[in-house]
Design a protein around this nucleic acid. Sequence first.
DNA 1: CTGTTAGCGCCTTCAA
DNA 2: TTGAAGGCGCTAACAG
Lengths: 343, 343
Amino acid sequence: MVKKYERKAVATGSGESVTLIDVARVAGVAPMTVSRALNRPELVRSETQRKVLDAVRKTGYVPNMLAGGLASSKSRLVAILVPTIANSIFSDTVQALMDGLSSSNYQTLMGLTAYSQEREEALVEAIMGRRPDGIVLAGTSHSKATIERLTKSRIPVVEIWDLADKPIDMMIGFSHEDVGKQVARHLLAKGYRKFGIVSVDDPRGLRRCESLKRELAKHRVAKPPFEVLPAPATLQAGREGLNRLLEANAPEIVVCSSDTLAQGVLAEAASRAMKVPRDIAVMGFGDLSTAAHVYPALSTVRIDGAIIGMRAAQALLARFDGETEPADVRIDTGFAIIDRQSA
Amino acid sequence: MVKKYERKAVATGSGESVTLIDVARVAGVAPMTVSRALNRPELVRSETQRKVLDAVRKTGYVPNMLAGGLASSKSRLVAILVPTIANSIFSDTVQALMDGLSSSNYQTLMGLTAYSQEREEALVEAIMGRRPDGIVLAGTSHSKATIERLTKSRIPVVEIWDLADKPIDMMIGFSHEDVGKQVARHLLAKGYRKFGIVSVDDPRGLRRCESLKRELAKHRVAKPPFEVLPAPATLQAGREGLNRLLEANAPEIVVCSSDTLAQGVLAEAASRAMKVPRDIAVMGFGDLSTAAHVYPALSTVRIDGAIIGMRAAQALLARFDGETEPADVRIDTGFAIIDRQSA
DNA sequence: CTGTTAGCGCCTTCAA
DNA sequence: TTGAAGGCGCTAACAG
């Protein structure tokens, strides 16, 4: 009986790529059986299984996922688009997401949008070429083209870090409007009346600040001075923000749209020998665990990026397993206002 | 004359995937011509080019890179393995690397090793399945299996954040031994004699510390107490480290293996009302720009992650263009000892 | 449980 | 400058 799949002599060099067929030949089975043994071992007799694994080891075979993906229309790839990973709230998210996905053998393609819809659009376009099984997007401000492309691709999408009315598909986050509102109420309840706001020019940060202003207006508080600095948020921007606020009359409390900004404000206050929160109180947003050690008087809105990432991974995996339907998932992870002001 | 490539009716629904053949049919050319128009436009008449682009727009075609990669053995994918992105020195690196590569149309697959050789090995294995065009690895401590696999895959590899004797291929970083040595000399020159060392259990950090100890020994300085804490580096670990050092007699200067650790030490010192650097001096490592605003007395070894990432991207692109040969590249990006101690 | 056949969508190679 | 044939390595679907 003549063996098949003899097409190629045994690789002599080292660069030659070993294929399924080589493994099949060594194991003395059909290529399809090797494929099964590797991907659905439960369908294969255990002895066959052993033979195949031996052959894999002997040959140093590494499955070609490009070929596998092409044949099966499953890439086992999830794309993640975030504005940056320099900010710990996003890197926590990404890290948790990767952890959750990699334990189910999904790999992640990351893209950095730098808060730009155009970049996001280009990235989505490029990434769709890889036929990812799922896409995670930070935020809900996407270009029309992006939304359309994603919608009709029917790829599972998770929008994170935000909750909005018209999700593309799944959504995991919290309401930035709610943050602004609750911060306003919280601070009003503590007796503050003279506010100052510092934000960078980032859509979500601005939404929090606008909501804060609306809530203050409702309570008939004087319209607070509002300094918007160009992105990205830096310590320097925070210092500059406080400087500008102090040119007019000093607010009792400065609300910052981000953690780094708040640290900048604190640094500037320190350099002016202002005591926090006695001379000026500061409310931050995001991860201020580092600063909190140094400035115990700092209040903050705490978001847990890791939880958002973990939930996103779970949502995708559930969807891959057919446990949920498009647009089924909408999770409010909430936020906490952590108050360290002892004013 | 009967047209070819009529295999499929025009997609009516929206989920149907558009292929090169569909575009070819719409444009009235052969599939191969579409491929050329998209990938090597210089080989195509400009009118044909226009027809193809029109058809692409009309059909909403997105090239399938799995198929393209399979056919051409080029994935336009670069894998990046780093211990974590929670640390800004690595996230800067990753960010710069992605920037550099994406402008040449490469995408990046990221993997997090959590400082574990086993995880790195598993990730390398999984990632090789995607047939990346290049791989970037942080550090030089890899398992034998990892090294062997990478070596015989002949995929361009860049090891970053370190310089060692036996590179797999390209290497961009600095010598951790040199850091330890220079820090020792620097501090000795400033007159310090009573040292304390705090490190987490991370290979590169330990190498810096060991080298520091060796240099101190050479200069006949008393063997310093050396606290090694379990990874990951946290503020808490730093505080604990200083606590332990202070149980014996207090050192004049504490050298920390990482930025976070140094911040923990500073926080603990602050909570004990110790003045830095008067009561105790602190030398950190990595990105302490945040802490520096708060603790102007902190010294640090400054590494620029962004430069390392940028250089790595350049090195890979040069290699892809055939401008360099395996093992041609070895770049010492150096480091700076930034001294803010005014003791 | 295992094997056979027929593509997946694109690009390489050669021919026109 | 464009086209046709064939194959990249794998898996779905159907037989046996």
